[in-house]
Design a protein around this nucleic acid. Structure first.
Lengths: 215, 215
DNA sequence: GTCTATACGGCGATAGAC
DNA sequence: GTCTATCGCCGTATAGAC
């Protein structure tokens, strides 16, 4: 609630959050310095304390905002009522667009969850109904996969298996960008070509992969 | 070279390196505390300085030992003279075995390279002939892919594309273990099932994926 | 080579004025 | 709500004895 001293206090809190987001995503929370965040937000360190109490709580706020955006987006696409192929294409398309806008988010989420999985997953599960969404989404998807199997178009396939394959191929080239650049020379241009390929081909690629042997 | 004070000085240096390895892999370098490393090695903090001067140099030593082990292992399998399908299977098999022994290494490498890619990739490229290995390995692989294409068994496929797909599907379930656990409920048991599936099926899965459309 | 003890610096947190 | 100033801790680095 703005007061007379600053009619736009909300904006400050948000500027801090945005600044923290940028610094945390770039450096990782552990290596990030609160001073750098304050500078980026154009405020004093003391204000971070005023709004967020501690660096950890600030990190939680940043993480939560990201996760609460990304997770439902993924689940929404996977849980739609589209037929299987369209659903895969839609999911890949949403993810690709999100990645084009923020290519480093997956790496950030991955790295932070790696060292703080307990705290962060608890945090996330308090904000969104993780379990419920998973059960309904995966339930529906599994039914589709079973139908495709019955129709002879897929081998027996678990929804989890398919989703992990999809996520791996979509996120890893970005999450592991630096690693892949060193290991296989995957530069920016190549990554963009790969992204274009995924949007056009990945759904069918996966369906071929899970298709039964030709008789 | 051991002296009379400690006939086994080399062992101390190695114990420190191993302890640092464990702590760095678990916490990430930025969040790791030298005290914890010293404790784990059963020595005093001062000895870390004696052998490695700074925490950063110690981190470099740990990273380098890991990277120098993993990278040639991958390239060795990919650069062998086996026919395509066997080569893929062999690569997957080596990687799977390495992952079974050290499931968290990919996440460690990924996260460290994420915030220190310049320093670390320079370090790595001074220790192993990155470029050369890549060119020969990818050259040979590309030839194989071209032959398969000419024989009508594959669509036009770039070696990089194939290798990135392979690495993504093998490493991501481990590197992003915590993230995937939260997002899709992938627990230890499921991860093991997935690993078994990869060893048995992934090579053929990829080959089907890159196969041409049925006529 | 290994230890004890300490110096040094920086970061997160906070008090208090405005 | 925002700032200046400062505290207190903790981690790294180092000196020096053995």
């Amino acid at each position: 609630m703005p007061n007379k001293k600053n009619p736009d206090a909300r904006a400050t809190e948000d500027r801090i959050l945005d600044a923290a987001h940028n610094v945390f995503v770039e450096r990782g929370v552990a290596a990030a310095r609160t001073q750098e965040i304050a500078d980026a937000a154009g405020v004093n360190k003391a204000l971070l304390h005023y709004y967020y109490r501690t660096k950890e709580k600030l990190a939680d706020a940043v993480f939560l905002r990201v996760a609460v955006t990304l997770f439902p987006r993924l689940m929404g696409a996977l849980g739609s009522d589209l037929p299987l192929r369209d659903k895969l294409r839609a999911t890949i398309e949403t993810q690709s667009k999100a990645l084009a806008a923020a290519p480093f988010l997956p790496g950030y989420v991955l790295c932070e969850m790696r060292s703080n999985s307990d705290r962060l997953s608890k945090l996330l599960s308090e904000a969104v109904p993780l379990e419920e969404m998973r059960t309904t989404v995966f339930g529906k998807l599994q039914t589709q996969l079973d139908e495709e199997h019955a129709a002879g178009r897929l081998r027996p396939t678990s929804a989890q298996e398919l989703v992990v394959a999809l996520i791996s191929m979509v996120l890893f080239p970005h999450a592991g960008a630096h690693m892949l650049e060193a290991a296989v020379g995957l530069d920016d241009a190549a990554r963009q070509r790969l992204s274009a390929w995924r949007r056009a081909e990945l759904a069918d690629f996966l369906l071929r992969g899970f298709a039964p042997d030709a008789p």
